[in-house]
Design a protein around this nucleic acid. Sequence first.
DNA 1: CGCCACCATGGACAAAGTCCAAGACCGGGC
DNA 2: GCCCGGTCTTGGACTTTGTCCATGGTGGCG
Lengths: 124, 124
Amino acid sequence: MTAQRRVVAEVLDGRHVHLTADEVHARAVAKLPEISRATVYNTLGELVSLGEVLEVSTDKRAKRYDPNAHQPHHHLVCAQCGTIKDVHPSGNPLADLPDSERFGFKVSDVEVTYRGVCPNCSAA
Amino acid sequence: MTAQRRVVAEVLDGRHVHLTADEVHARAVAKLPEISRATVYNTLGELVSLGEVLEVSTDKRAKRYDPNAHQPHHHLVCAQCGTIKDVHPSGNPLADLPDSERFGFKVSDVEVTYRGVCPNCSAA
DNA sequence: CGCCACCATGGACAAAGTCCAAGACCGGGC
DNA sequence: GCCCGGTCTTGGACTTTGTCCATGGTGGCG
């Protein structure tokens, strides 16, 4: 656990938002100016492997990192401003996929993304 | 409707696979060698706006284009080889999102991605 | 004290996509 | 038939996002 990794962990910790790798880097630099992009990417990759952080790809521009890895949840995205909210739908989408639609896959995970327009953007 | 657009539409038409923009470009070039990348991107963008084609982002590397836009469906992705299958779960995930979890959003769409391992990869 | 393994660094590189200025093409009006 | 205006395509430069690699430093251990 080096100084650099601590900083990356601190950036994600607590603030329950969904940062891009670049944003993580920007905030890490604010705390530890000489940290490099490569290190941030390395560390994020390790956190993902450890299951401490989730990679989310709600848009195709950049990966986002979700510190809320320990509770299963899904995402609600504003189509206009890109805001992301965590949501907890009732029901289990995994159960909605009948065997006949599994094509022999071992299905292990589901990712649900709701899209819509947030109050802010629909007001504007 | 120019020659270039016809070619892009032809590439997507019929073959029910999920091509990346680059693959679309490669196949378009085979039919019309002087077509440029910019044109393919433009045309794909228009097809998406028209609702003729869907953008799918199952991995974060590249957008994929799904010609099966007129029938709602979701995707089953192999975590190892990236194969994509269309699936049709029972149930409606939109209905599973209670008002209390909508944060005032106008929710209009849901995208469900199942992840797993395909028979081929799990055999290997 | 010296060595070794690991890690961070920065810069180059790669992939995917966007933007822009210039030219081709097409249809309409004269 | 010819010019005009607009629209589309083109090619290339540029940006963004991410990965790779060689180098150098640091800490622990014998």
